[in-house]
Amino acid sequence: MATILLIGPGAIGSLMAWSLQNHATIKVYAHRAGLSLPGHVESDGETHRLRWSLTDSLVGIDAVLVCCKATQVERATSPLIPKLSGIPWLILCNGLGPQAWLSQQLPGRVLWASTTEGAGRFGQQVRHTGVGETRIGSPEQYIVTDETEQWGRKLASQPGPLELHWEPDITAVLWRKLAINAVINPITAVQQCLNGALAKREWIGEIEVLCAEIQQIARASDIQLPSDLAERVVMVARATGRNRSSMLTDIEAGRETEVDSILGPLLCAADRHGLAAPRLQYWYQAVIRLHPLNR
């Protein structure tokens, strides 16, 4: 049985460990002081024990799974990169910046993933709040080795409580998720509201303007986003109406947000292509003002 080193035992990391623990030994790297592991996942009214353990040893590791927040990726992985550069890595986090950074540090070794699973951590228990799917793939701009791709395809094909798939165009999948997060996260963080507030008529105009800016940036970057992006944003806001966005949760907890990983790549791409994105810039600056730690 292979041994996977997991970085980031939060809600999504816990779900991934639960899904993979019948096929691999899960070791969690203690990337920060005081790290504790949830003991159970609650899903569909049932409680499932998590079989994992903390470690500071890198001996016998066959692959690495990165599930920490985007803001933590560089700090958490930098000490490990020189020691674990010859094995497959998989990164599952918000945004696009950390994925590109890690792929540049580990040429040919990093697969990307995106998930629509919903989860929240409540003390020592993780609650599976929404059933979705997780897609794993090789980014076209960072080609991986055959060994790494084979590992990813095997991971995606293994049965488990989560639905895992191999995705031929993972970059497009991450862009679609980024586009929706780039609208919902900053507005809910600044307005201090639940996701469902954005399904109200008063926000339709702002959502449409933001989506038009994102569409323009995507086209310039050779990415095809759905033509009904604004409608999809409203649909997601309605479907997750009682949820707090990750950016709002970070603001409420006084933590650094993921604004540089979610809005940052879009604004950098706009600048690179000479495009104006005034509303994205407005919400980016509004989040920064709320929490200066981002600077």
Rank of each mutant, 00 (worst) to 15 (best):
Val73Asp: 01
Val64Arg: 04
Thr71Tyr: 10
Asp250Glu: 03
Val66Trp: 01
Ile87His: 10
Ala100Phe: 06
Arg201Gln: 15
Glu231Asp: 14
Gln105Lys: 01
Gln105Asn: 01
Glu147Ser: 13
Lys27Ser: 05
Pro265Trp: 05
Leu80Asp: 04
Ile207Asp: 00
Gly108Thr: 08
Glu167His: 13
Ala100Ile: 13
Ser114Tyr: 06
Trp151Phe: 12
Lys177His: 11
Ile184Phe: 06
Ile61His: 05
His48Met: 10
Glu147Pro: 00
Arg75Pro: 02
Leu50Asn: 01
Val64Asn: 06
Gln124Trp: 11
Gly86Ser: 15
Gly86Leu: 11
Leu162Asn: 08
Ala286Phe: 05
Leu65Cys: 09
Ser78His: 09
Glu42Arg: 10
Leu275Lys: 00
Gly137Phe: 06
Ala30Met: 11
Pro79Thr: 05
Lys177Pro: 12
Thr188Cys: 13
Ile7Trp: 02
Ile143Gly: 11
Pro292Asp: 07
His40Cys: 12
Leu210Ala: 07
Gln105Leu: 00
Gly152Gln: 01
Arg201Pro: 09
Ser53Cys: 05
Gln72Lys: 03
Glu202Ile: 12
Arg121Trp: 03
Ser103Arg: 00
Gln141Phe: 13
Ser53Thr: 08
Ile180Tyr: 09
Ser43His: 07
Gly34Val: 06
Cys193His: 05
Thr129Met: 05
Ala156Asp: 07
Gly39Ala: 01
Val259His: 10
His31Asp: 04
